[in-house]
Design a protein around this nucleic acid. Structure first.
Lengths: 210, 210, 210, 210
DNA sequence: GATGAATGAGTATTCATTCAT
DNA sequence: TATGAATGAATACTCATTCAT
């Protein structure tokens, strides 16, 4: 029992070790330019070992997304669970949560887009794929719930909650991507924060019923 | 002189012919999967010929972005030039203009992000690079101008015009990317349009001073 | 027209150049141990070039078999076309023909067996595959015809011509393989010839009706 | 002493366990496609353990051949030992014996050929190699003895007994390989049996002195 | 003895780019 | 200018073998 467990834990530790290395290498060079050799070197392992823990390059990459998606869902559900809190406060809390997630792993948005490419999807194991889809669906559903409540209470304008959730997510990811691509992030985190704040404020104002 | 000029024109025609083919192939397969061979075939030319007109694959890809950026700037400046029109109307016109640009070349957003990747930038010639940067700057500046006017006139809330312009652009590109990645575009253009409309409406409402 | 033709011929020359090199390398090391790099080196070409003329390693290997099969069929049909010649003489001529084919390319038998492996078949283009099957069928059919005639004329014992053809082919290939595997060929060609002669004599005697 | 012996027996048991698994895996996938991992799994052992009992993959494969060769020799010597039986009856009995061996392990012929490849031989330990050679020599010698007797008694035609033995063996293995490669064995064992019968009948007839 | 995680050499194949014609 | 045959570097992935436990 102890042995079984220790082995399991050791194995998980290895997976994490590889994922940490992979995250670093993928961040530096992007998916295409990053080689498995690079990642192995970063992880101080041999290339073959990577394949003991991940089916292939795509699945290693996707696993990074899975991890961050899990954390994202956790945060979102936490927001939804706040007692004595209206849609309005929840929305603000949601924004904060998402910013935290972003700080935890700035690649989240790029990962999400890469993940959707049909070529990528083909190479993933069905289990991983369904897990990812499930997490995505739950997260977006949880976000939509906030808007649904807000609309029902007459606090938010009466638009389709899913469209509002999409808008919310789009603004968030749009700002991230846009500023990332402008390479402004490295120069100034505050600038990102500031732009996000303005964007959110405008969105929030526009959302209010009155 | 006539000869010189005719040659120049002929050369430009060839460039266009290649870019049309490249656009088709890149759209179908994405940057990585598209091969120069594919593009040559689509253009009914030999691979070698491509290199007479474009330094390399990256630069060919970037040239597509340049073209669309030129068109984008044209449309934005056109919006700004509308007489007897307030920031409010201009904003609406801008939205329409951007949607037109998108319909003209749906890859625009993806191109813009690909373009910014540092690995890509390294392979571009300085001339092309500065031209692209110049166009980007002008476009964003032109957009910011609308917001500046709106703020000055007390129509829009008093936030930094550049931040507002970034927000506007982010929402637009965010929605496009998000829905593209959700594969909803192929299924339903209306859905994209609809979500964009909601997003813009919310943004617009949130922007108004009162 | 001249140009088109010359190019075609040049291309065929390249194919032959590669096949000659491949034959040498495959003979030396066998299919698995031979690398495309080896073959390219032997052909004084780059690895990439091999793929301009052959889809993959399997198809290159199979092409060697195709060539020898074509020659085999030619020889067999030639035997069948001999005028004023009974099944008896034809059989002897067939034996000679097959020995010639063997001398032309001693790998023929081994190629034939490799060719049949299901894993190999998967990687061949349908055209090549059907061409090979067609040639095999025709060759065996042509051999069977001799036995059919002999049986019909009462010269050979009354057994199924296909079984007799299979037996004939089996003896031939069996002797070749057996002696090849005993590495006796290198030591003494006469020994192979001698054993084949005895085998054929016995087979021939056993075949006669009386 | 008892302990030493028991250990020895235990060790032999393990070897057998591995060989049984190896035979199954090699039969299914062939030498190249079969992995040591596969075999270990089939034997319910770890890969490392395989190397405690066999020097390498080649030697494991060769050991299978050794076993079948031992069985083959046993059967052949048994035929030779039949009292009150002439070369004629012995030949028939030999044919039956070999068919039994084939049924016991259909891979025998293929093994024998694989075994002879020079690349394979290099990787075998000298002991194993000489044992295999010894068994082969003895088997072929024992077969040749039958023919020698038949020739001496004037029953068989006067040809070199070794050549006759080679012919006999070649026909047998030739038919097996040929029909195997035609994939007819799976479809119909009877067809193989039938063709073998015709082949043997013709051989036998051709062999008789009168 | 037994394990099985880790190794890392080995290889088919692709494709951007070049250059002789 | 245009060609397109040739290049050869680059890379994901496999698997026989080892060795610390």
């Amino acid at each position: 029992m102890g042995i079984q467990e220790r082995k399991e834990r050791e194995k998980e530790r290895r997976r994490q070790q590889i994922m940490v290395a992979a995250k670093r290498v993928f961040s530096d060079r992007g998916f295409t330019k990053a080689t498995m050799e690079d990642i192995a070197q970063e992880a101080e392992l041999s290339p073959g070992t990577l394949y003991l823990y991940f089916k292939n390059k795509e699945e290693l990459y996707a696993s990074l997304s899975l991890r961050i998606l899990q954390y994202l869902l956790l945060r979102i559900e936490h927001v939804n669970a706040i007692k004595d809190s209206g849609p309005d406060e929840k929305l603000t809390a949601l924004m904060e949560a998402m910013y935290d997630v972003y700080e935890f792993d700035p690649l989240i948005i790029i990962n999400m887009f890469h993940l959707q490419s049909s070529e990528t999807l083909k190479n993933l194991s069905p289990e991983l794929l369904s897990e990812i889809k499930d997490l995505s669906r739950k997260s977006m559903g949880s976000i939509a719930q906030i808007f649904k409540d807000g609309v029902a209470l007459g606090i938010f304008i009466d638009r389709h909650p899913v469209a509002l959730a999409d808008t919310f997510w789009s603004i968030f990811s749009g700002v991230i991507l846009w500023l990332t691509s402008k390479k402004l992030i490295n120069e100034s985190k505050d600038f990102l924060r500031e732009t996000l704040t303005v964007a959110f404020e405008v969105f929030h104002r526009g959302l209010m019923a009155k």
